[in-house]
Simulated assay, not measured.
Amino acid sequence: MAKPDILCIGSVLWDVIGRSAAAMRLGSDVPGRITRLPGGVALNIAMTLRRFGVVPALLSSVGRDTEGEELIARCAQLGLVTDHIYRSADLPTDVYMAVEGANGLIAAIADAHSLEAAGDKVLRPLSDGRLGDAEIPYAGMIALDGNLTESLLSQIADSPLFAVADLRVAPASPGKAERLLPLLTHPRATLYVNLEEAGILAKDSFATAADAAAGLLARGAARVLVTDGGNPCAEGTSGAGVITAQPPQVMVTRITGAGDTFMAAHIVASRKSIPRQDALDRAINAAADYVSGEIGS
């Protein structure tokens, strides 16, 4: 079993994405392409980390159905550590479905019910000695996503199993952003959110990513990164203020997975102790390359 450089905890599922070159609205029926790819926030982050030479281990729930066996095999082919994934014979493999047009994401549905039903079973490797336990908790970097339930995220926020880890946290979507509230003021957590998600967490509205970063710091966050599409993104660190970066202008060919790519690229830069501004620039450029199609799925 390969020793992981980072743990990615959250959704590991199939992405079913319909993309069209046409602008779409409610009720549109247009030609396009439909693809099925390994996905989920935790898996997207892990796949990007692996492309950058980092070895991630996945902690999630994947069924023992045909879809699950295929997904585990694909993850192994990609060089991801799957030994710690909770495998249930009773829970089906989760799936995410999205429709994207020339004017962006039209709609998406995340069926992550199996991950939610598995609950703290996905965390067993952190308590049974495989990756750590209460006496010697895991001391490395952990990427968490908001597909975990709010109760489980609350448990993580107070758990001694996570007391010394470097936590990197992202919501799965604006609809699940509130689940991260228990981790907002965690002293070892870095939050990766978009402008809408930042507003939900702060229970406020912000005009810019820089405003949002400052607002979250004011509410007790230790470190935050806020993106806003093609507008400037921001990174805020408690006691060190807020910095910004302007994304390069690119032709957008896909949206799903862009935030995960941004987060993964920033994590890689952080592991190399790259200065704050350079790390932010690298992350936003990696996300731009992804949405333009220059980085493979």
Rank of each mutant, 00 (worst) to 15 (best):
P247D: 09
A210L: 04
L180A: 13
Q246V: 12
S238N: 10
Q155K: 15
D145W: 05
R219S: 07
R223Y: 00
A240C: 00
T227H: 08
G220R: 03
A172P: 09
R223F: 00
P187K: 07
A165P: 03
G199Q: 06
A245Y: 08
N147V: 07
L167V: 06
A189V: 04
H186G: 06
L144P: 04
P174H: 09
E150Q: 15
A234E: 06
D204R: 13
K176N: 11
A221T: 08
A170T: 12
A177G: 11
L217Q: 09
F206T: 06
V226I: 10
A177R: 05
D145E: 10
I142T: 09
L201P: 12
F262T: 02
A202N: 11
G215W: 02
N231Q: 14
A222T: 13
I255Y: 08
L152T: 04
F206Y: 15
E235N: 04
K176R: 15
T244E: 15
G146K: 07
K203G: 09
Y192A: 13
Q155T: 14
I142P: 00
P187F: 00
P247V: 10
L183K: 13
I200T: 13
A198W: 03
G220M: 04
L148F: 03
Q246A: 05
R254H: 11
P182G: 12
G230C: 10
R254W: 03
G259S: 12
A240G: 00
A222M: 06
A264S: 09
S159L: 05
H266N: 11
G175E: 12
I267N: 00
Q249C: 04
A264L: 08
T190P: 03
G236V: 00
A172M: 09
A170V: 05
G220V: 03
L152Q: 09
A198F: 06
T149E: 13
R254C: 09
S151C: 03
T237G: 08
P160H: 05
L167I: 04
P160K: 08
G215I: 05
T149V: 08
S238G: 06
A163F: 02
K176W: 02
